[in-house]
Design a protein around this nucleic acid. Structure first.
Ligand SMILES: [Mn+2]
Ligand SMILES: [Mn+2]
Ligand SMILES: [Zn+2]
Ligand SMILES: [Zn+2]
Lengths: 143, 143
DNA sequence: CAGGTAATCTGGACTTATTCCAAAACCTTC
DNA sequence: GAAGGTTTTGGAATAAGTCCAGATTACCTG
């Protein structure tokens, strides 16, 4: 009987393949971080990744967490979401979508790309090409 | 002959009125910061405000710059723009508009609100009300 | 397997935007 | 001009993120 990975999400092998597909060598630390991130679409800060990776048995240092998240972002495995001036969120949902940020709770939620009807981009400053388009709706608890 | 303010922009009195209209008492430091910001629509970091306010004669401390920018933001006189994880921009253009952020140069540019055709907002998480909607297009020099 | 080389990881120091604090300066009112 | 609230201020504190130089690990070749 094949053992499935603990939680839902990709099997370790699938994670390794995903890293290798981007030309990233699959070290122990990288695989662990990737397994955590790719388990489901989610938004985690570097601190949260550090805490969760080290919660169980093995460990990864703070420097490695940052190195790895930056590497993954550069390679397109995660998306950096800049909504809170005090920390960056790393988003394992790499499909096109937008965000709702709850200023009261700090919770970041996805919004379907299609539920926002945006015309094509306006003329950008000359000599520039778009890299990312982010729509962020900040909300408050409507007590 | 009425003396106009140095650069273009509101006269000192107009600035003071604008502060008072928001219930902000017009101290020397606040007026100076407001004069700088309201001179034209622009995007400045706290550091840039500190540097420019203190470049000329009088002074304001770092703590006061932050206090004042946070106060102005809370009162709606400036808009905080979160595009760079390393610093907040304060935007003296309070009309509805969007932003282009040049990742290479760090320059932040306005985009007409109307040039983006957005349908009404999608359903937000229940129990929340929208506060701000920000569209940010990150670009690179297309060398 | 062994040795050599490059890549990766790590603890801890460092940087830096922002906030915090308690004392000083300022304003307004009697 | 004393009282009392508000604002400012220098400097300390906080915390995300980066840097660094020395291990550790991975990979390659024979
Ligand atoms: Mn980064
Ligand atoms: Mn703020
Ligand atoms: Zn997301
Ligand atoms: Zn703007």
């Amino acid at each position: 009987m094949k053992k499935m990975s603990d939680k839902q999400g990709l099997s370790p092998d699938a994670v390794i393949d995903r890293l290798k597909a981007k030309g990233i060598s699959a070290t122990r630390q990288r695989v662990q971080i990737a397994e955590l991130l790719f388990a489901k679409p989610q938004h985690l800060s570097a601190d949260q990744v550090l805490e969760r990776v080290n919660r169980e048995d093995s460990t990864a240092s703070k420097a490695t967490i940052y190195n790895t998240l930056n590497l993954f972002a550069r390679k397109g495995l995660v998306r950096e979401v800049i909504v809170d001036p005090s920390k960056v969120f790393y988003d394992s949902n790499t499909s096109e979508h937008h965000h709702v940020y709850n200023l009261d709770s700090g919770v970041l939620t996805d919004i379907e790309f299609t539920s926002i009807n945006m015309a094509e981009l306006p003329p950008l400053p000359t000599g520039t090409t778009p890299v990312t388009v982010d729509l962020i709706i900040r909300v408050r608890e409507s007590s």
